[in-house]
Structures are given as C-alpha cells and as structure tokens.
Design a protein around this nucleic acid. Sequence first.
DNA 1: CGAATACGGTAATGCGCGTTACCAGTCAAG
DNA 2: CTTGACTGGTAACGCGCATTACCGTATTCG
Lengths: 208, 208
Amino acid sequence: MGAAKTGRPSGRRQALLQAAAEVFFEQGFVATSIGAIIERAGGSKRNIYSEFGNKEGLFSAIVTSTADRALSTLAIEQIEGRDLQETLTAFGRQLMAIYMSPTLIGVYRIAVTEANRFPDLVKSFYEQGPGRAASQLAEVLEGAKERGEIRADDCLRVAGHFVGMIRDNLHLQVVLGLRPPPSEQEVREAVASAVEIFLNGVRPRRDK
Amino acid sequence: MGAAKTGRPSGRRQALLQAAAEVFFEQGFVATSIGAIIERAGGSKRNIYSEFGNKEGLFSAIVTSTADRALSTLAIEQIEGRDLQETLTAFGRQLMAIYMSPTLIGVYRIAVTEANRFPDLVKSFYEQGPGRAASQLAEVLEGAKERGEIRADDCLRVAGHFVGMIRDNLHLQVVLGLRPPPSEQEVREAVASAVEIFLNGVRPRRDK
DNA sequence: CGAATACGGTAATGCGCGTTACCAGTCAAG
DNA sequence: CTTGACTGGTAACGCGCATTACCGTATTCG
C-alpha cells in the first residue's frame, strides 16, 4: 500500500509535518485522527509518537513552525523608504497576501478554534502576526507624525485601523469558506482604496 | 446536583438550548459531548434526541436561534437621520457592541471552526451579520454620495473598510481570548477615532 | 558471512462518545 | 380506584480513537 519509500528520518519528519498540517487545518484539532494523518503521509503511527511524543506535541510543532515560516516574511523595514503612500500600499499588499494565503488561513482558523485549549500557541501567533504587523506600522506612523505628514493621537490605534481596513470583510469571507482568496487584481484594488481613504483620513487638515 | 427543576417542556427546551450554546461555543462541535450538555442543563440525553433528533440538529438549532437573536438588533434604519458623523458613530458603536458580545464571539468562533462541516449555517450567519452590516452601511453611504457629502467609487467596498476599521485588532484579540471585551469607554474611543479617520478619508477634497 | 540492534508496522487495549433499547414513575381517562 | 399511555431516566451497545506492546525486518558492525 505504501507509496512512499522509507528514507532519511528528516524527510519523514517533513512529510509528517506537511500531512498533519493539512489535516489539522482542515478538520481542527479534535476531529483530526492520527490515522488520517498517517493515511496521507504514509508510514505508521509509531513514527509520530517517537517523533513528537503525542498528538498535542505534533500539533504544537505544526502550528509554530507553519506560523513562523508564513509570518517571517512580514517585515516593514524592507519596504519603507519612499513616501508614505508607497509604503502603505506595499505594506498593505504584503499584509493581504499573507493573510489570504491558504497556509495562514489555516493557522488563523485553528487559532480561533483552539484558543481555549492552547492559549500559549495562540498568544505567540498573535504577537508574531497581527500584533507585530500593527506595531511595526505604528512605528512608521510615528515617524510620519513627527515629520508632520500625518495627524494622529495614538499611532498604535490608528495602525490597527489600517490593518482592519485591509482585512476587511474579505478576510472573513475567505476564512468562512464563502469565497476563494482574492486575485492580484482584487488585492491591488482593495489596497489602493483603503490606502487612499486612510491617507486622506490622517492627513493634516488646514480648516480647523 | 440539578439546579433546574423540571417544568414545562418548553422551559426544558430553553434550558437545553442555553446549556448547549455555552458548551458548543466554548468547546466546538466535535469536542462537545451530549453528556456535558446534560450535566449542565440537567435532565437526560433522551430529551435531546426527542427534541432535536441528534447532535447536528441541536447544533443547528442553537446556532441559528442564537445568531438570529443577536443579530436582529443590527438595524441601521433606526439610527440614520441626523448627519453622517452621528450616523456612523452610532452605527459603529452598535456594531462594536454586537461583535464583542460574548454571544456573538461564540457564534463567530463556531462559524470559523465549523465552516467546512456546516457551510449553509455559516453562509446564513455571514449574510445576516457582517454581510448585512456592510450592505446596510453601503446604502447609507450611497445616499451621502448622491448628496455630495462623500466621495467614493464603490460604496460597498468602502463600507467594508469601515466595518473592518471598527473590528480592528480588538475583535481578533477578544476572539482569541487574549483580552476581555472592551469597556464602554474603550468602545467610544475606538469608534470615535475610526469615524474621524474614515470621514476625513471620504470627504470630498477641493485640491484636485 | 553472521549476529545484534534499532527502526517501522500491526494489532491489541482501554476509554469515551453518540445513539438507542428498555424500564419506572406519572398523569389522565373511565 | 384502576388502567392505560406517555414522558423522562438508566444502562447497554457498537464504534472509533489515542496510545502502546509486540514482532518482523533491515542495517550495520565484527
């Protein structure tokens, strides 16, 4: 039955992680059976237990490694430099691309679902993902504020508004499986619209 | 152990729905056991099966009834009337209150979790909740646009941006159990900030 | 070439769940 | 007061799962 040949242990581990991620993200922690993972990955249950200890260990390994990999590309420093509009546009597109990727949709689902069961995982996911995005953006905004380009009381709050605008109902629809992830074109349009409103919204107004 | 007295069958039904909602929303569909619901509601398993057929029936009944009740208060018509800022502020607060209520947080969690298992439930939840909020707001914006109060290409998209701003990272944090729902005060501040940016953002600009 | 060892697979175990068969108590009708 | 049906509870059933004990096999070292 086994299509996969037994090879180096590290290859095995990767295949296991890959298969487990798929099943966990689709079905959730409780509904996922070790058997289903093995069916997809090949090999034997025994392997999972010697590699990860138990179901929770496997789950934690998956979530952290997947989230780390997906979120590591989230860095505003590499983008900043030109004017604020370009920075926001590029950052918005990057944010959108990450949020809408099937991988992060899966992580997001699992985080919402298992928030009670794995509070530590969820906390670190938030801090490395949405939380970090907001605080990175807040720093950029702080700079712009000091330069007088924008007007804002609380930059962190305002940054939150921006990432909220980017997420929009789009993210929710994708998470709920009501529509496929947006195309490049749709991303560009949505981000452009959000950036325009946001920028106008925070630009200093003369009449006041 | 049982705190609830056995009474009329309709009271029984309500108690069952109440208890089931609590457990389902906290644990998810798969992890919730009929036994746990009975433990909380009193009575016997038999009761659930004669009243709702099976676990899925109970679940569907809960989700639809809870969502209906929580979302029925979402009506922009009763608010509209004065100027746009007041309308947006009131609508934003209402939205925030509904989104952050423990009840809707529970429904939201379950919707995200069980999107694959119950696509129809999820679809109707979205359409009655976030979807309806956006389209209602879009109509209001359409009116304002015709009156020349705002400038917008696609009102539905822009409405989506507004509700996204309102949800912010706050909603995510609450859903993930990382912080308690915001106080009245916090709601007011967040909404005020979002409305200000949004309104400035969509107001017609002279220089262009 | 042979034996020891470690790894991977199969099958067993114990548990918890959804669901249902069966039984006791209760209320109404005659 | 008796008897019938019906509502609600207890306990059993079958199943599927996480976890583990046990065994074959391949690999490596002498």
